[in-house]
Amino acid sequence: MIRVEGLRKRFGGVVAVDEVSFEARDGMVTGLLGHNGAGKSTTLRMICGLLQPDAGRIHVDGADPVARPLEAQARIGALPDAAGLYARLTAREHIEYFGRLRGLPNDQLEANIDYWTRALGMENIIHRRAGGFSHGERTKVAMARALAHRPQNVILDEPTNGLDVMATRAVREVIATLSKEGRCVVFSSHVMQEVSALCHRIVVLARGRVVADGAPDEVREQAGEADLEDAFVALTGQKLEAV
């Protein structure tokens, strides 16, 4: 479970995240919805202990990423926005590297590699070097690498951004499975359709602030709009980007 209270972060004179609070429960998919620059990535990076908030508190299953980032990171598996691969390593070596860094014993590492290879449909690329991978293949490897230890808390920053239909479907299936397994999944997106299809709970961010928070139905209610997309426009005063 991830809980965020009154999170603030400014870069120079720009307030990137302003009083953001929400809770992402186990067994649920929580979506952070907002435009580019709304503060989604900054919020997720603070949860992962990569950025220090100026104010506010974060709990990741009782661990505090601000005071003890490594403790929180041990409980999280996170896919950053731009997750670059090592062009000269194979897909398998990517998963192995991160799994070993997290101290997985060999048999468990093997089992997890097998699991992700199947779950993400990577059978044909698992022994190939990442240099020539398509965007979809790269995202799958980056995801398997981030989740090599099969963490309780999963953070995915725009995981489906720029993916083709097949790869998007694979990622969505993984997200659904993760929450069915009782894990806490937080993912960010600017695609309304995706958020409404996958999320049990939506947190709408605009200019660093939470403008709506709740189940999809509640968000529609808060905005007074029947359609989620219209609700988003009403809440943020901005149109959603074309998918």
Binding site: L50, Q73, A74, A82, A83
Partner: peptide
């Protein structure tokens, strides 16, 4: 690739 690496504890 470095941000992903820094996410490891």
């Amino acid at each position: 690739a470095l941000e992903a690496l820094l996410l490891n504890p």
